[in-house]
Design a protein around this nucleic acid. Sequence first.
DNA 1: CATTACCCTACAAAGTTGGTAGACTTTGCA
DNA 2: TGCAAAGTCTACCAACTTTGTAGGGTAATG
Lengths: 138, 138
Amino acid sequence: MLSKKTKYAFHALSYLAENQERGAVLIQEIASNKNISHKFLENILLELKKAGILGSKKGKGGGYYLIKKPEEITLAKIIRLLNGPIAWLPCVSLNYYEKCSDCPDEATCNMHIIMCQVRDQTLGVVENKTLSDLIKQK
Amino acid sequence: MLSKKTKYAFHALSYLAENQERGAVLIQEIASNKNISHKFLENILLELKKAGILGSKKGKGGGYYLIKKPEEITLAKIIRLLNGPIAWLPCVSLNYYEKCSDCPDEATCNMHIIMCQVRDQTLGVVENKTLSDLIKQK
DNA sequence: CATTACCCTACAAAGTTGGTAGACTTTGCA
DNA sequence: TGCAAAGTCTACCAACTTTGTAGGGTAATG
């Protein structure tokens, strides 16, 4: 299951995408509109900024804003960033790979093969869906 | 990611499937062959028994054994039992459904729609793979 | 100089993970 | 009848993660 952090990130990003033309948006505005704890959201937005998805401006008229087009931000990227690996096992993860101690040979391990299928099916969706798919026809 | 519990369950079930003709198998035998803590495995096997997947016999010559054919035990069933929901959000879970507080209408919530796709893609694999797929050609 | 993001520490309740320990019950067999 | 083997049950635990709350100080900007 996705963590609340990840869900909140999607909500916040949707809000920013919908208000993109307005420029910088206050943390507080997002928090109260999306019903997220201000302090918790602060951390989330900071992570998104460090990942190069958001920009920020301090001082009066400051806030957060998207620095990419919504079409360029895949759901997979957000999920990996805030939720961790998409794969079910470390040994089939593309971004967080770790050898599994149990299986002697990944090429012939049936578990491995099936988990790769699951991963690919999942990625087939979230690598091809972007923030813009999230805010369509609302 | 799948928990160790779930991974252990797959290992144990594979072992039991491979040794099906021998009848009851000791916890200890599975534990040492698959390198799992004996006591932890005990809990896992008990859960599998309560779920109607395994049977057990006490006393001398006792142990655990499959009470279903490997082809009848889907990976989805094991994962749901030991790992919890397969869906990424409670509001798209078939077996653990819960309404999400944030979205006003599931039919028009884009998040909801995308997460349903992810779920269906995942289920497409694990509902159609069984224990017998795990032990093939070893 | 007010505003706003940034950054840090600390706390905390609740839940999950990956176990450990020990007593109890049932069973098979001699 | 009695013992040993084996699963069953209850309890506990340490470490970690999650989902925050609270507060304060710093830096940039208009």
